[in-house]
Design a protein around this nucleic acid. Structure first.
Lengths: 233, 233
DNA sequence: TTTAGTTATTGTTTATTTTACACTAACTTA
DNA sequence: TAAGTTAGTGTAAAATAAACAATAACTAAA
């Protein structure tokens, strides 16, 4: 069924940059989720999850649908990143891509390859594969945004499981920001925001002193946010 | 000449939120540039400058072209803001809009209505007219972005003429951030960044002590930026 | 030419925030 | 029960931010 317009129109896609984090690893690092393309162009190459926007869905809905179809991930909070529109970014012709990004905890999320993709896989930055389209460019911009944002908004918690230790939280910030932080000063600052709730529980099965487990108080953050509350690491 | 595709495609537009500032006014305030639409839909209503993206131009090029055609403004630095894609934002059907924003000095820039618009006009926030499409929403997001950005990047200078006084700079920040700032502390902070060059000249024609004129040292800022320099007001 | 009026320019003291820094507590395993 | 490992905690010094007012320089009116 062909569709005809009086003026030419670019095609419209969405792409998702999903950052994943595994707090259990000794060498914690950020990973990004890619799918292996099973259709041309760039068949066999790795690419960001994404695809064409349908007429009856919003941009964000399209991004969520593609992410679910291609990787099995759902219920992630997607934020719009940037819209890419150079002339030559897709060999099929003029294609505009609206990109989204999200932060997830690797351990809580189960991957499953969908119908459009041979497989979905996490890659750390050191072992990044060759990518389709301008996706290398997209993730560079996403990483820049993540680094900028993590310092002024408490989004780091999205990368951790519901319950986490203060050391895990600190390691996360050290990983994302590529710095090292003073343990006591970090804890003092985090405590001053009063955004964590002590669960009363402690870590189990570790060969040393068990750390207290905390949860992030989303409700309280939303309250504070209204009144111009400033978060900063 | 009709264009046919195997799948339906949304139309793609760009919209420009141009903030203007007049440093000479006693009651300084931010204005936004609108055009009066002379075609349907929303004929006679005010709207952001913008229009359809052509196949042979990038998104930013489209935004610049529409801005020039409709208002006569050119050589402004446009930054991508957000892409709007709700289903019902345009009565003509599914239309995605990539928005851009820019900051200009009202006095330096000459307006001239173009062919697509009956007239272009600056409106201050207090006297905002009824707007076409979802443009009210777009400018709300633009204003949020501006307020967030102006505190961490020295973009305020784009709203002033090449030469300006420290009082003009302070008034600008007070206007955009809707606060009042301490004069001595403000000057101390600005001075500490070493981003201003004293021109040696002073203001003329004022019925009181003439203020020194400064220029913003863009080159120096770009240098400092590379090394993680932090600006904050 | 003097005076009144208006805006520009400048520094110090106090309060707050950030940084630097090291020992004891608690748990597991050998 | 001893050794090993990570968790948890406070204080002093330095840096930064905030509060605050008098003099300088110019124009216009008397």
């Amino acid at each position: 069924m062909p569709y005809t317009y009086t003026h030419p129109r670019p095609a419209l896609t969405v792409d998702c940059v999903i950052f994943g984090y595994d707090h259990r690893l000794d060498e914690a690092d950020l990973k990004i989720l890619f799918i292996e393309r099973d259709i041309e162009p760039f068949r066999g190459k790795w690419a960001l999850p994404g695809g064409f926007v349908r007429m009856e869905e919003t941009l964000e809905a399209a991004a969520k649908r593609e992410l679910r179809e291609e990787t099995g991930l759902s219920n992630v909070y997607l934020e719009q990143l940037y819209t890419f529109g150079t002339l030559d970014r897709d060999p099929r012709g003029r294609v505009i891509s609206v990109s989204y990004f999200a932060l997830v905890n690797l351990v809580s999320e189960e991957l499953q390859a969908g119908t459009d993709a041979l497989s979905a896989q996490w890659f750390s930055f050191k072992e990044m594969p060759a990518l389709a389209f301008d996706h290398k460019n997209i993730i560079e911009i996403a990483l820049e945004r993540l680094r900028g944002k993590v310092r002024y908004q408490p989004i780091g918690f999205e990368l951790l499981p519901d319950q986490f230790t203060l050391t895990e939280l600190q390691t996360l910030y050290e990983t994302v920001l590529e710095t090292s932080l003073d343990k006591r000063n970090f804890r003092k600052k985090i405590e001053s925001y009063e955004l964590l709730r002590d669960t009363g529980e402690t870590q189990r099965g570790k060969a040393h002193r068990a750390a207290r487990l905390y949860t992030f108080d989303h409700k309280r953050y939303k309250q504070l946010e209204k009144y111009g509350f400033l978060f900063e690491i």
